[in-house]
Design a protein around this nucleic acid. Structure first.
Ligand SMILES: [Mn+2]
Ligand SMILES: [Mn+2]
Ligand SMILES: [Mn+2]
Ligand SMILES: [Mn+2]
Lengths: 220, 220
DNA sequence: AAAATTTTTTAGATTTACCTAAAAATAAAA
DNA sequence: TTTTATTTTTAGGTAAATCTAAAAAATTTT
């Protein structure tokens, strides 16, 4: 059984490992909002418990055991997010911090019944997949909106940024999950993207377009 | 803001204060499953934060601030219990430990929306009253089943023992909240009580009868 | 290849919540 | 009212998770 803190480290390492194989001390420190020295201490402990493989100065990778534990926390996090949005009417930008706490409640029973109560959802309010109780899930095929060309279309199925500011912004623009969009123009000057959504034309910045994930995209 | 641990102390002190005005160090230690020396340490901290009044060797009493905090945790605990039973199909003997963790999640928003989602319940699965968001609740008038005389009747509205073993036992006997009962006999030999419930006669031990709370009782 | 920079680790402290063992205060019994 | 027993506190220490400052290793730049 892991502590609250260990679980947070495992989850952060898991997410960082999606980008690079060897996860660096500084990267973890930044995510956890702590100092690199503290991370080194914790890494040693996780290595001791065989949750990570660790070579001094080379960063860490999760062991199977560690990845399993991490996925389990991700599962809990996302299920709680679904609960908050579907049942308690939270907005998608309000759920993260609360789920960050709820994910650490220890009860196998609880999470399985919650899963059932929610109808075994496949993805969370941000479009991220929810692992099943065996830790299995399929990585959905996304393409960043910014990578689409004029005339391309698709469905908004995820975001790669979870900050409240960003999500609120999308909400205001009507850019929510499931919406159909089509690229009508890309501005030369600032790289901003003109998109057609529900018969309306809107303009979004490059920065925004980078973090919107599109699926079912049809090339023109 | 209190820590997880401080919250547990406050809640325990609150419950113990229902019996005696001055809550003793040893009593707290027993409830928290810790040593008296540790309790003394924590008491000093709570006194420092003005959550309890403390006179050395005389035990503690909650300040208004402390009681408020305690009632807030009790509210959360009981609302989560309702959630687990009503929505996730937990049995009344399965909820305590999970609620013990859930009660510490910090989000005003969360608990108010949960309250609404549950339909603003007035009591938890064990018949205990749920304080409203201002900490107000009415102490229901109970009488212990053991105190009833032959011919008296009433409704089961609470229990004064929350152990899983006890609750499972009641469940098996059909002695659940809301059931109408009538005392048909009291055995001289062992003080066990013969009761009439849903046209059936059952016999319960003195020990069990002590922890069943009855309301709307009509004297014969 | 040296120098400069960045990253990571070590050393030594701090805080929180515990603990044991022993002393002090209070309460109960003789 | 002593003596005895119980309760509570103090003193000193441990483990988890942090921190700062400084040393060491790795990487990048010149
Ligand atoms: Mn977390
Ligand atoms: Mn999410
Ligand atoms: Mn608790
Ligand atoms: Mn209860």
């Amino acid at each position: 059984m892991q502590s609250f803190t260990e679980e947070n480290y495992l989850k952060v390492i898991y997410h960082l490992a999606e980008k690079t194989n060897n996860v660096q001390t500084n990267a973890i420190a930044e995510q956890i909002q702590t100092k690199p020295a503290s991370v080194t201490d914790m890494i040693k402990k996780l290595a001791e418990k065989e949750l990570v493989d660790y070579i001094k100065y080379q960063g860490v990778t999760l062991t199977d055991k560690g990845r399993h534990a991490a996925v389990d926390i991700v599962r809990k996090h996302r299920l709680w997010e679904v609960f908050l949005v579907d049942k308690l009417n939270f907005k998608w930008d309000e759920v993260h911090d609360v789920a960050e706490e709820l994910e650490h409640i220890k009860s196998v029973n609880l999470i399985e019944r919650l899963d059932e109560f929610l109808g075994f959802p496949k993805s969370d309010p941000h479009g991220d997949p929810i692992p099943d109780k065996n830790g299995r899930f399929t990585k959905t095929q996304f393409i960043k909106l910014i990578e689409l060309k004029i005339g391309d279309s698709g469905t908004i199925t995820g975001v790669s940024q979870h900050s409240s500011a960003f999500l609120k912004h999308l909400e205001k623009l009507g850019l929510t999950l499931g919406k159909q969009i089509k690229i009508s123009d890309v501005t030369d000057f600032d790289g901003s993207v003109e998109i057609l959504i529900e018969e309306k034309q809107i303009n979004i910045s490059r920065e925004v377009a980078k973090h919107i994930l599109i699926s079912n995209n049809g090339k023109n």
